[in-house]
């Protein structure tokens, strides 16, 4: 049996009397894309923030590459990266300067060649010398993704990576991520509100609702379990249950 690259056990986060994540356990295997799905407020973002060491869990454990995140933070984060639509890069720097800073931050060698490679992969040639504040939202998303793959991580956390992209670029990004997964054995934790994308990208899906894990398995297995026609129907059913329980 292959050891998981990420193992989350009984992860819980409480903010005063509000429980954002409640005893969640899951794992990611090497080279696997795991979809993290759930309506707004389900605890996806808090979970990712805990996995990145930005929020301290109330209880539970996070093991990455067999190491405890709380005691091996630096070692683990060296091999992990993330991209989120909701996080920005310094606006006054050019695309290249931003990538250069990230490369230095992670202590990479052959920086110029690596940046060239990422720029080519994400088709950023035409705006590589442009100041970040002048980028369109689609270009900004590509830069955020470029920053994430520049460090050649072993695990990538992607929070809605295609949210502001047009269908053509989104398709290319998905193809690129699949290619990275195949060629380098990259493991990805992926969140998206695009259910078709989730079905296409994820090897397995973890479904969160009000901080709890309510389903885990392949997209088809989850659809079957809830007796719906597709993942979108499952999502709508669970999201409406969440809304109803909040208003009652």
């Amino acid at each position: 049996m292959v050891n998981p690259v990420l193992k989350v056990s009984q992860l819980t986060k409480r903010f005063s009397d509000f429980t954002a994540v409640d005893g969640v356990s899951f794992e990611i295997r090497p080279g696997e894309i795991l979809g993290l799905l759930g309506p707004n407020g389900a605890g996806k973002t808090t979970t990712i923030q805990m996995l990145l060491g930005l929020v301290t869990p109330t209880s539970g454990s996070i093991e990455v590459f067999g190491l405890d995140l709380s005691t091996h933070r630096e070692e683990i984060l060296q091999q992990v990266n993330f991209s989120s639509t909701y996080i920005s890069m310094p606006q006054a720097l050019t695309v290249e300067e931003n990538l250069w800073v990230v490369a230095r931050l992670y202590g990479l060698s052959d920086i110029a060649q690596r940046i060239d490679r990422v720029v080519r992969k994400l088709e950023m040639e035409e705006f590589r010398r442009k100041v970040t504040r002048k980028l369109s939202s689609g270009q900004m998303t590509r830069l955020a993704l470029g920053k994430a793959i520049l460090t050649e991580p072993r695990i990538l956390f992607l929070d809605e990576p295609t949210a502001s992209l047009d269908p053509d670029v989104a398709y290319k990004i998905r193809a690129l991520l699949k290619d990275e997964q195949r060629s380098s054995g990259l493991s990805i934790l992926y969140t998206s509100h695009n259910m078709r994308e989730m079905e296409e990208m994820s090897d397995r899906i973890v479904f969160l609702q009000r901080g709890r894990l309510v389903a885990e398995g392949t997209a088809q297995a989850i659809v079957d379990r809830f007796g719906q026609t597709d993942l979108e129907e499952v999502f709508l059913k669970l999201a409406r249950e969440s809304t109803a329980s909040l208003s009652s």
């Binding site: 990145l52 984060l77 890069m89 006054a92 990230v102």
Partner: peptide, 18 residues
């Protein structure tokens, strides 16, 4: 503050930076 205004703190503190 420059990092805060640029919404770059998460990029920094989710990196190996101590």
């Amino acid at each position: 503050l420059e990092e805060l205004w640029a919404r770059n703190l998460m990029n920094l503190f989710a990196s190996p930076l101590k």
